[in-house]
């Protein structure tokens, strides 16, 4: 792997919940001890159920919510230790695309205004005509006509709004864009277009993505590596092919077996490992391995001690489970593999 663009080390994001005058607030561990690296031009998929800390992870990397502990090294520099002004300068390199396309655009600003704003922010003193030209060029790049510059977000469809949102993120030429479920609010046909656009932009600008999603079939199309989170903890991380072909963690296995197959005959043959029960409350996570309450293979050891992340066959593929070696990784041959 080339020199990492981003190194996240032991990142924790804890939120105080409740707590009044006489009671101490309880800590919600949204992200707990997560470490990973990201290479330039790479796409890392982050998957997990709702409430597993995916979005908190993305926002903590961007310092939009302050991490409780850990380091976020951007080209070797710890972003957590920068003051606001220094961080704001860095923000041109780290951008964000949101889930709800319309809500992420200020309804009182024209599209042109929305696209020019990052330029004015990151390049103070830029001439208005240059900002307008670059906004127009960016609109053309994401497939919108520059003549629509004077329209307001509510005049656009969801897919178009997401294009505007992507254009806003890309206009400052970032090196990392965190996509927080960018397609989950869109129609399937539009999803494919947006994913194709993200891919084209990645080839053109050599940008890295952290692609947050709960939709494995979307992740499969875009990502090089995949990270599985459960209750704020890293369960398994590895190259896409390893994760899809030989998932080691029982949670990953059940996630994969829940992906719908568009062929009823094959779907019926498949041995589905559906999870039982609900996600435990992150305010009161289970002892030991957080997944043990829903894990079909849990033993007393899982209650006592939390598994640490360890490398499987390849160094890149790591899993946090006491029994990954004894669990037979089923080859998911019934799934078409990515590209």
């Amino acid at each position: 792997m080339s020199r990492p663009l981003l190194q996240v080390e032991n990142l924790r994001v804890h939120f105080p919940v409740g707590g009044g005058l006489f009671s101490r607030p309880r800590m919600l561990k949204a992200v707990d001890d997560v470490s990973f690296q990201l290479a330039p031009g790479e796409t890392l998929g982050v998957v997990g159920e709702s409430g597993c800390g995916k979005s908190s992870l993305g926002r903590a990397v961007l310092q939009l919510i302050p991490p409780t502990a850990g380091r976020v090294l951007w080209l070797g520099e710890d972003l957590c230790r920068l003051d606001d002004d220094a961080m704001n300068v860095k923000r041109s390199e780290l951008q964000l695309v949101f889930q709800d396309p319309l809500a992420s655009l200020n309804p009182r600003m024209t599209v042109g205004g929305i696209l020019r704003e990052p330029l004015y922010s990151f390049e103070p003193g830029i001439a208005r005509s240059e900002a307008e030209d670059r906004a127009a060029a960016m609109m053309r790049r994401v497939g919108l006509r520059p003549e629509m510059m004077n329209r307001y977000p509510n005049e656009f469809s969801g897919g178009q709004c997401q294009r505007i949102s992507i254009a806003r993120a890309m206009i400052s030429r970032p090196r990392l864009v965190i996509c927080d479920e960018p397609v989950s609010a869109l129609d399937v046909s539009i999803q494919a277009q947006i994913i194709a656009l993200l891919r084209e932009l990645q080839a053109e600008y050599e940008v890295s993505y952290i692609f947050i999603s709960h939709d494995l079939s979307v992740v499969r199309h875009l990502c090089h590596r995949i990270m599985v989170l459960y209750l704020g903890k890293l369960m398994e991380i590895g190259p896409k092919r390893d994760i899809f072909d030989t998932p080691r963690h029982p949670y990953t296995q059940s996630l994969l077996s829940a992906v719908p197959i568009p062929d009823p005959r094959r779907a019926r043959q498949r041995d589905q490992k559906l999870l039982e029960g609900d996600l435990p409350s992150p305010l009161n996570p289970p002892s030991g391995c957080v997944f043990r309450t829903r894990c079909p293979h849990a033993t007393p050891l899982c209650i006592k001690s939390a598994p640490v992340l360890e490398a499987t066959g390849s160094e890149a593929h790591q899993v946090a489970c006491h029994y990954w070696q004894s669990l037979t990784p089923e080859t998911h041959t019934d799934q078409p593999t990515g590209e």
Binding site: D84, S104, N106, R108
Partner: peptide
């Protein structure tokens, strides 16, 4: 709470600019 305010923070605007340009007009 709106995401566009978060987006404004992500493009490095100061709090006062965000209040003036993104909160007050809305």
């Amino acid at each position: 709470q709106k995401e566009y305010v978060e987006a404004a923070r992500a493009i490095g605007l100061s709090n006062l600019v965000i209040v003036r340009r993104h909160v007050v007009p809305n």
